[in-house]
């Protein structure tokens, strides 16, 4: 489903005395369709950088990211044009970060439903599905129609998860999706991820808690700071 080949990323900061920052040395790994690939390694090693390169929030500096898209078949996400990436983000690739990009004055229900209506699902059907999802994530019903700007970190994170999972993405990128959740909600999220996997979603994820990672990951790439050229071990 995804083949990462010699990916690296550096930042040339032209301000601050021409700093050259290289958070990610060369990395390569493959993920089979419907599998969960965990990313592990110490803080600052570049786990989030990998995810952001795949989502193209960062422009990869070197290497390729072959992705098997439903629309075009294989496509290199590292060099695909912006219009293609936007199309994939709308239809195939979702990303759950630790933070919700809060949009003022759009209700929780609508933020999630938007993902479905953008694809042509009727509003009524979308809201039906969204409510089921929010219920499972135990988001208190009284805040469904409120604006998420005022939500707690954990509530925003659940909304984020709902938003990403509702559209049954083909590829799901997860960056510490459960960081601010309590034990019970974490379990629900894990269940939802298992379900998504059953439905064929391929996932690449970072969990700071390795016990949780073990429960869902089929395979793990551990990034190792001591291996200079290829900080990669396929476990």
């Amino acid at each position: 489903m995804i083949q990462i080949d010699g990916l690296s990323k550096w930042f040339d900061l032209h301000i601050a005395n021409q700093m050259h920052v290289k958070p990610l040395r060369t990395i390569s790994f493959d993920v089979e369709p419907g599998k969960f690939m965990g990313l592990a390694g110490p803080s600052g090693i570049g786990k989030s950088t990998i995810l952001k390169c795949i989502y193209r929030t960062y422009l990869p500096s070197e290497g390729s990211i072959w992705y098997d898209s439903a629309v075009w078949g294989k496509i290199d996400l590292a060099t695909a044009n912006e219009r293609q990436i936007l199309h994939l983000r709308r239809n195939e690739i979702s990303y759950i970060s630790q933070f919700l990009r809060v949009i003022p004055r759009v209700t929780a229900v609508d933020i999630v439903a938007e993902r479905l209506t953008a694809r042509g699902v009727t509003r009524a059907d979308a809201i039906e599905q969204v409510k089921l999802m929010l219920q499972r994530l135990a988001l208190p019903e009284k805040i469904w129609d409120a604006f998420p700007a005022t939500f707690s970190g954990g509530e925003q994170q659940r909304l984020n998860i709902a938003r990403a999972l509702i559209s049954q993405p083909r590829l799901l990128l997860l960056d510490e999706p459960t960081a601010s959740l309590d034990y019970r909600t974490k379990t629900v999220v894990l269940d939802l991820l298992h379900e998504a996997k059953k439905n064929g979603t391929t996932m690449i994820g970072v969990f700071h808690d390795l016990e949780w990672l073990k429960q869902i990951a089929d395979d793990t790439v551990t990034l190792d700071p001591s291996v200079h050229a290829a900080p990669l071990q396929q476990v």
Binding site: S69, W72, G73, K74, I75, D76, T79, A80, N81, Q84
Partner: peptide, 13 residues
């Protein structure tokens, strides 16, 4: 478009 679909034509979607 930078799609190299022809490079993979034995391996269609």
């Amino acid at each position: 478009l930078q799609i190299n679909i022809n490079d993979f034509d034995d391996e269609l979607s």
